[in-house]
Each structure stands twice: as C-alpha cells, then as structure tokens.
C-alpha cells in the first residue's frame, strides 16, 4: 500500500488511473442505481458485451475504439430497448443473441486487423493503468452529460422505473424515457470499460448500487452512496493490485464482490435478529 502512495506522487499514469477510477464511479453509482432498482442487470450485460463489435470495427477501420464502443453501446441499447417494449416475450433470448453476436463480430474484426494486434485482453478486462489523458476528458464529459440529464429528469425517470403503466397514464412519454435510460446505461458501460473491461462492467455497475440499497432507501441516497462505494472499491483495488503487480480490473471486481457478499450476509443477519426481537414485543402491543 505504502509503495502505491509513494508511486502515486511520482507517476503520471497512476494519477490518471485514480482520476479514471473516480470518474467511472460517478457513472456506476448513478446509473447502477437505476439498473438495480429496475432489475435490468442482464439487459445492461447484453449492452456491455455487444460493445466489443463496435470496438473491433473501430480498430479495423482505424478509428478510436472508445468512439466505436460508444456508438455500438447506444445502438444495442436502442435495439434491446425497442424489443423489450414491443415483443416482451422474447426479451431474454434477444439480449442473449445480441450479447454473443456483438462479441463474435468484434473478435472477427480484431483477428482480421492487419499489422499490430491490439491487446484484446485490455478491452475484455480493462487496463486502468493505460488510460490516456484524452480519455479522461472524454469520461468527464460523459459523466457531466449523465448528471445533467438525471438532474433535469429525475422525477420522470423515477416514475418510469417505479411503475411504467402509471407513468404512461400520467402522460409521461415512457418509451422515450425508457430508451433514454438505456442509452445512459450504455454510456456508463463505455465509461467503465476503461477501468475494468467489458466482461467485468456488470459487476461494477450493479454491486456498489446493490450494497447501497442495503443501507439507504431512496434513489438519490443510493446514487450518492454507490458512487462513494464505487470510488473506494476502485481506488483500493488499484492500490492493492499495484504492489504484487496484479491486473487492476479483476482486483477491483473481487473487492466489490467481497463487499457485496459481506454486506448481504450482514443485512440478512440483522433483519433476522430484528424479526426475532420484535416478536414478543408486537404480541404485547396488539
């Protein structure tokens, strides 16, 4: 750990990694909360994995892979979202198909990219130590966009994630806000790919928000706590991985997973004790 903090003052790449971790945490806290309460983790997973298609195509044609990822993420969010709204019965099959097709397309493109083979592993598992400064600005801009949209329309988003039918009866354009929400999840996926790679995105998107949901009971507070948890986990994971030279992405995810499991077990134990403690008391009250 001390080694990490010493290195942090010296190396620019580590400072960039820390900033990237913090920027990704904002997206994961805010959008992760919606993913968790709306129970669309599988859908978010589909978006995340199909992004490889866009990254592969971008690499093949010589564009910035991150731009390719963003475009692919938005397209697959809109596709999955429209299918979900139109043909509800086939939703999970469709997500599974898009998930696999996107990855297959990406791997074909990367295999056929002439010359230097780009590091496939860093797309799949992320490489927070190699985030260029340009990407940091890109990430900051995406975060700003997410925060502005959520700040403006948090009531409409709440209405849509809480009860779609009631929202529709209130005259809220549910389709618009639902698709917007998925596009924002897609943007978050792209933010997180830098840090943990597209395979592990799902964990960072859901685990901090799920842990926050154990302790606080409003969307706003969940977002705040999930962001704090996300930053803590990604920075500690980064620090832990530095000394023994472990890959940072998986270390961060394991840490998040451990926090989630411990928190879930503790919450269950506390809830059980509460029920047991309240039994004789409530019997007296009535």
């Amino acid at each position: 750990m001390n080694e990490f903090f010493a290195a942090l003052t010296q190396h620019g790449f580590l400072q960039s990694a820390v900033v990237a971790g913090l920027l990704a945490s904002i997206g994961c806290g805010v959008m992760g909360t919606y993913v968790v309460v709306k129970r669309i983790a599988f859908l978010a997973g589909g978006i995340a994995h199909s992004v490889l298609g866009g990254m592969g195509a971008a690499v093949y044609y010589g564009f910035d892979p991150l731009a390719g990822a963003l475009i692919a993420a938005i397209i697959s969010a809109l596709l999955i979202g429209s299918v979900r709204l139109q043909w509800q019965a086939q939703e999970d099959t469709m997500i599974g198909a898009l998930w696999a097709i996107g990855m297959a397309v990406g791997i074909l493109f990367i295999a056929k990219t002439p010359g230097y083979q780009t590091d496939l592993m860093s797309y799949l598992f992320g490489n927070i130590l190699l985030v260029p400064e340009k990407s940091l600005w890109f990430m900051a801009a995406l975060d700003a966009l997410l925060l502005i949209i959520v700040g403006t329309y948090h009531r409409q988003f709440l209405a849509v994630v809480f009860d779609e039918e009631f929202a529709r009866l209130r005259g809220i354009p549910v389709t618009f806000f639902y698709l917007l929400l998925l596009v924002m999840v897609a943007i978050t996926v792209v933010l997180l790919i830098q840090v943990v790679g597209l395979i592990l995105v799902l964990a960072l998107l859901t685990l901090p928000a799920a842990v926050a949901g154990h302790y606080v009971h409003s969307l706003g507070r969940m977002m705040l706590l999930a962001t704090l948890l996300g930053s803590t986990v990604s920075l500690s994971g980064l620090a832990l991985s530095y000394g023994p030279d472990l890959p940072a992405g998986p270390t961060i995810i394991l840490l998040a997973g451990a926090v989630y499991v411990i928190s879930a077990l503790a919450t269950r134990a506390v809830a059980r004790r509460k029920v047991r403690a309240s039994l004789p008391a409530s019997a007296n009250r009535r």
Binding site: A159, F166, R170, G171, I172, P173, G213, H217, S218
Partner: peptide, 29 residues
Amino acid sequence: FPITVEQAVMIGRLGVRSRHSPFGNLYPG
C-alpha cells in the same frame, strides 16, 4: 422498491402540472 409513500404518491402530480404547461411532460426539475 426504495421509495417512501409520499414520494410514490407525488408521482401522480407529474401529469397535473403538464396539463397546463407548454413543456408538456418534459417539465424538468
């Protein structure tokens, strides 16, 4: 779902203001 009774009831107000608003249901804030 993490929401209080008051918050859930208040969602019903969304369409009320937009009945008279030029922004319709895109009324922000």
